[in-house]
Design a protein around this nucleic acid. Structure first.
Lengths: 217, 217
DNA sequence: GTCTATACAAAGATAGAC
DNA sequence: GTCTATCTTTGTATAGAC
């Protein structure tokens, strides 16, 4: 069995090695995400991570020189995924379309990346020792930029007056709650986002409350 | 120095002892809440808890026979505080007054019991191994009861149609976010709920969005 | 009730053979 | 690159003196 594509040249620096190495790293990172998101940095053991990844602990430490390096590597990957939806907000959209779309995307994230959401939440709860810097620069600038867009909509009269920061926090809180508190929601409603009907009902209700409110006028 | 109230009878089973014992237990529980809420059950060490409580580790283990017993003791205390606000929802209120009040109380909880909120969140993220039972019985029944109240308001026409469960989840998510993600909010807005103006702005904006929505009709 | 000493296990990390 | 063996630290918990 040759794990790589057959090549004519005999030996110019090991063909599929790098790929295999990357694959193994990915397996380790996946296992790490799974356990860190459940038990946190301190609570998850390298033993358990190595075990779940199907490698030996020593081998894990060959690819990631320390537990903290591995943790940071996992966190970095998450942050990018996390900032994408808010980047998509654009002044040329109508506020209704933009917010409607944003809510759907975020609930999709809660459904498809539950573990990432939880690890991010864990890191925040601990005071974000490893992310604070990036929050204060990148994320802050991003939120500031999108707040301007929201204020534009308000000035134009297409959105009722609201503090853009608090609107963003409400959207974050409401949507991420379905990932981080999935157990509680399951205990009460008997449903999770993996149920298509429940997913649609979630999106629809958040959209309706945020956009239309609860009181008839 | 007599630490207890002077008593005529000389020695009927040590007067202020029980109180002193309770006080020490409370100090330990407080320290435990502080550290468990930061690092979780596994991540917090008895060394650190004892240190913060100002007692020796051996002494801590005299009052709480094991780490897990201590953890459970802390969690139990939280759950009661947590269910109170939703109990107050009452069919005789107008929906506007009830929801307005509920939002304020919950944001107050996020401000005054940040650590409890975080420990609760941690427990949920981990799958609530120690709380699942209670969620499925007590909390579920409570939410069901209050959902009926909300449905009554909708049938009466004083509230626009919404799924009561999703409304409750949105309120939980939006309000607790200010406790659990306080670091992130501070990084972006430069404010926390301990700032009275920011607190009021938070309450006001959530109330406005949830009750009135964002679109003019 | 509180302390010192200690047993005992888990966990992160390294050395060195293959 | 991967493994076995091992070092070292940390952490939970108990024994027994005072």
């Amino acid at each position: 069995m040759t794990p790589t594509t057959p090549s004519a040249s005999p030996a110019i620096s090991t063909p599929g090695r790098a790929a295999a190495s990357e694959a193994r790293k990915r397996r380790i990172r996946d296992a790490a995400l799974s356990l860190f998101s459940q038990f946190g940095l301190r609570g998850a053991s390298l033993d358990a991570i190595a075990d779940q990844a199907g490698v030996s602990k020593t081998n894990l430490l060959y690819y990631f020189p320390s537990k903290e390096k591995l943790y940071i590597s996992v966190l970095q990957q998450i942050l990018n995924t996390w900032l994408e939806p808010i980047r998509a907000i654009d002044a040329n959209q109508t506020p209704e379309a933009a917010i409607r779309h944003y809510i759907r995307i975020k609930v999709e994230l809660s459904r498809d990346h539950e573990q990432s959401s939880r690890l991010f939440c864990l890191e925040m709860i601990q005071g974000a020792p490893l992310l604070k810097e990036e929050l204060q620069h990148d994320l802050r600038a991003l939120v500031e930029e999108k707040s301007k867009v929201i204020e534009g909509w308000i000035a134009h009269g297409s959105l009722l007056p609201v503090d853009p920061h608090h609107l963003i926090y409400l959207l974050w809180g409401a949507t991420q709650h379905y990932a981080d508190f999935a157990v509680q929601i399951d205990a009460i409603s008997g449903k999770t986002l993996s149920d298509p009907d429940f997913f649609e009902a979630t999106v629809d209700n958040i959209q309706r409350i945020v956009l239309g409110g609860l009181l008839s006028r």
